[in-house]
Amino acid sequence: MVGGDVLVRFSMVQKTYDGEALVVKNLDLDIHRGEFLTLLGPSGSGKTTTLMMLAGFEVPTYGEITLNGKAINSLPPHKRNIGMVFQNYALFPHMTVAQNVAFPLEVRKVPKAEIGAKVAHALDMVQLAEFGKRRPAQLSGGQQQRVALARALVFDPELVLMDEPLGALDKQLREHMQMEIKHLHERLGITVVYVTHDQSEALTMSDRVAVFHGGVIQQIAAPDILYEQPKNAFVANFIGENNNLHGRIETIDGDRCTVVLDGGARVQATRVNVYGADMPTVLSIRPERLYIGDSPTDVTNRLTGTVVESIYLGDHLRVVMEVPGGSSLMIKMQARPNLSQPKPGDRIELSFRAEDCHAHAPLKVAAGDA
């Protein structure tokens, strides 16, 4: 998907509501035709404001947004040919399902003779072909969200925006709808821009994810790159589960560095955005990349710590350890028959590879690093 024609371009876009604080800061972003791009971040990070500017419900304070090469800053929402799906569905309760789906066609003055077929096709796409005569109140939450999706797709937009569309659903239905939307995107080849604060949802559905923090895109990449190669401490902590160790850079050699941890131990790490000796650093390590007991032969680092907690979770053990310097580390161990489960108070060794340990600048330094 990524690498094709640019459908949407944000150029140096800024947004402020009070004339002082920038909610979105100098945003440069290309969205490619046919891709599924998720804007991910905590509340107040700028992701929803970015989506609303693209939809036309907010106007940039500075900069330009183009769609198919044409500036759309001053174009009203209904003239942008963009489908929109909201968290609260925004269905008309007095209309039937079919009437709700037909509404965008009527607004666009589509001939009545064509509307019926287009509505039937849209409802069929979301597996609601038999529900056209019902009203929204007669549907479940998941069915209502499908109606909202059909309404967004019925006029064949080249771009569909989704603002936390699954936020009101329970976990099981939410996960089911994630896959439905993902498969629908793959089938239709439309461009989707999706906003969520749920990082697992973003990783599941997206071709690329743009991680927002403080009005800035901290990193934009495919889900596996974000998880395996976070660009700074914020991304490392926001995407997936993560462990942090604090220390100072002792030496740097190419893309590797030696770090003296707060507890005095020395470890080898992969250098990300640290640049000189004696610089403070935060090391990030994923729980599944820490080993207890049997470990790969190429591990570089070994620390001895005390088990604080050990929980059996069926397919894996979750072990929390305290290591010198007062840091707590969480380890995921794959469960297997006859596995000896560590017990609180046990003193044991854990190990990890240098390539699985990333040295970042502390968060206060890294926060503005795009």
Results as ranks from 00 to 15, higher is better:
212 F>R: 03
278 D>V: 05
124 D>G: 15
270 T>D: 02
21 A>C: 00
213 H>N: 15
122 A>L: 10
245 L>H: 08
355 E>A: 13
43 S>D: 09
353 R>A: 15
69 G>T: 08
158 E>C: 00
369 D>R: 09
227 Y>W: 04
305 G>C: 00
360 H>T: 06
335 A>R: 08
171 K>A: 15
332 K>W: 08
195 V>A: 09
274 V>Y: 09
133 K>A: 12
114 E>L: 14
35 E>I: 01
293 G>F: 06
19 G>Y: 08
347 R>D: 02
51 L>F: 04
72 I>Q: 07
310 S>F: 13
50 T>E: 02
44 G>T: 10
86 F>Q: 09
313 L>H: 09
210 A>H: 04
73 N>G: 03
60 P>N: 00
13 V>T: 01
53 M>P: 11
31 I>N: 10
270 T>Y: 03
134 R>F: 06
138 Q>C: 15
226 L>G: 08
370 A>K: 14
20 E>P: 01
247 G>I: 07
316 H>P: 00
134 R>M: 10
115 I>R: 10
117 A>H: 05
274 V>E: 04
233 A>M: 03
268 Q>Y: 05
248 R>K: 13
205 M>W: 12
33 R>A: 11
191 T>Y: 05
186 E>K: 15
276 G>R: 15
192 V>E: 06
43 S>P: 12
147 V>F: 04
248 R>D: 11
367 A>V: 12
239 I>S: 04
62 Y>I: 01
37 L>K: 06
236 A>Q: 04
155 F>H: 14
111 P>A: 05
274 V>D: 08
170 D>C: 07
123 L>N: 12
255 D>V: 03
26 N>D: 15
353 R>Y: 04
358 H>W: 07
259 V>D: 01
171 K>C: 05
196 T>G: 05
66 T>F: 11
90 A>K: 08
261 L>Q: 11
164 E>M: 09
303 L>Y: 03
166 L>H: 00
366 A>I: 08
228 E>I: 01
111 P>C: 03
193 V>Q: 09
312 Y>A: 13
100 N>D: 00
80 R>S: 09
201 E>T: 03
189 G>E: 12
311 I>D: 14
358 H>A: 02
92 F>W: 15
269 A>C: 03
10 F>K: 07
357 C>R: 12
223 P>K: 11
2 V>P: 05
99 Q>L: 07
315 D>W: 00
359 A>M: 07
